[in-house]
């Protein structure tokens, strides 16, 4: 996650000093994203070095002078190109459940169908919980939270649909024979035997 671009996006709105920026991150993105003030300061320094932001010193009567940061033209360009660069989604393949399911296919104390049902129960429980939260959330005042929950429902939905697909596949196959690893030939091939095995 890019703290750098978050700061640029906030400064794009209006010039601010570092402390305010740190506070605002949480308010806007509305996650448990706890960004430390130190991290804000160091990032700002790196941005200054890269000429993406600059600051003016503001004199105050009762406190020490503060640096008010603003975005430079170069910073604006950087922000724009960030917005226009799509985030590449990683496929979250081969998670723990996937392994469990595939192993159950080999045969065992529990059928793969039961494994799927069990997982589905869990996914539905989660989906239900998220849905309930979503029902309480007000998109007008809590839009980032709502968007986040909806994202979760969609992911859970996708998982559930995958499970549905798995069930359908199992139904179609009825009897699944797992592939055996092809034994790698070792040493000299025994010619004679190879001939005789030809049927």
């Amino acid at each position: 996650m890019s703290v750098k671009h978050t700061l640029l996006a906030l400064l794009y709105q209006h010039p601010q000093h570092g402390y305010e920026l740190g506070k605002q991150i949480n308010a806007v993105v509305n996650t448990e994203w706890d960004v430390k003030l130190g991290q804000v300061a160091s990032t700002l320094a790196r941005l200054k070095d890269a000429h993406l932001v600059d600051y003016e010193v503001e004199a105050t009567d009762d406190a020490p002078d503060r640096k008010v940061y603003f975005i430079t033209d170069e910073g604006r360009r950087e922000l724009e190109s960030w917005y226009l660069t799509p985030e590449v989604r990683e496929y979250r393949l081969g998670d723990a459940f996937y392994v469990k399911l595939v192993l159950s296919l080999l045969g065992g104390p529990v059928s793969p169908e039961q494994v799927l049902i069990t997982q589905r129960r869990e996914l539905f429980q989660q989906l239900h919980e998220v849905t309930e939260l979503l029902r309480e959330a007000d998109p007008r005042t809590q839009l980032p939270w709502v968007l986040l929950l909806e994202s979760a429902t969609m992911h859970l939905d996708a998982d559930l649909r995958w499970i549905e697909m798995c069930e359908a596949r199992l139904n179609d196959l009825k009897h699944y024979t797992p592939p055996l690893p092809t034994p790698k030939p070792r040493g000299r091939p025994r010619r004679k035997l190879a001939h005789s095995s030809k049927t």
Binding site: E32, Q125, E129
Partner: peptide, 11 residues
């Protein structure tokens, strides 16, 4: 299905 989720946890 059991109730709603724990918001903080989910968050």
């Amino acid at each position: 299905l059991k109730g709603k989720g724990n918001a903080d946890q989910i968050r």
